[in-house]
Amino acid sequence: MRNIIKLGVFLLVVAGLAGLGIAYVNGLTEPIIAGQLLESKLSSFKEVYADADEIKDETDTYLKGADPVIAEINVAYKNGAPAGVIYTVATAGYGGPVQSLVGFDIESQQTTAVKVISQTETPGLGAKAVENSFSDGFKNKDAARPVEIVKKEPVQGNQVLAITAATITSKAVADGVNAARENFMSNFVK
């Protein structure tokens, strides 16, 4: 019996020391991790809408209830007035959810840029959605017209060239853009 207590206490001491060690490292790294998450979020926001003094999360103002596609709405302020809107959207791709950021400019009523921030698509095919060669196709599209994915060189303004052999992924991104576009049209275009 005494032996069991001795062993138990020993294990407890080992686990306690291990816990303390982890807590110490956690204390050191926690602020860095938090700062970094914020910074990477802001820097990807800047990639889709560069010209902003301040970016505020206003999801609750512009999204009534839960939306299947739109996760977050951030408004970019310039000189104290709203200048652009950044949508965080998630749609179903080929291998799982595709999460992207869609930026709009309020004055020109056009998209600024689209950036795919997380995906689990097939490497070499759908995963190319993160590359600029695809996402650049979404730049400066009129917010009034739905974006359409085409497999040949686009001829109309609202068309975007699909990724070769990854139409489902391309469409997933376009679906996200269109959902954001509809919300943008009803909230920011008078």
């Binding site: 686990a15 291990a18 816990g19 982890i22 807590a23 956690n26």
Partner: peptide
């Protein structure tokens, strides 16, 4: 607030 102990707790 000790989610960082996840690995050690789970394996035990």
């Amino acid at each position: 607030g000790i989610a960082y102990l996840q690995t050690i707790a789970f394996i035990l």
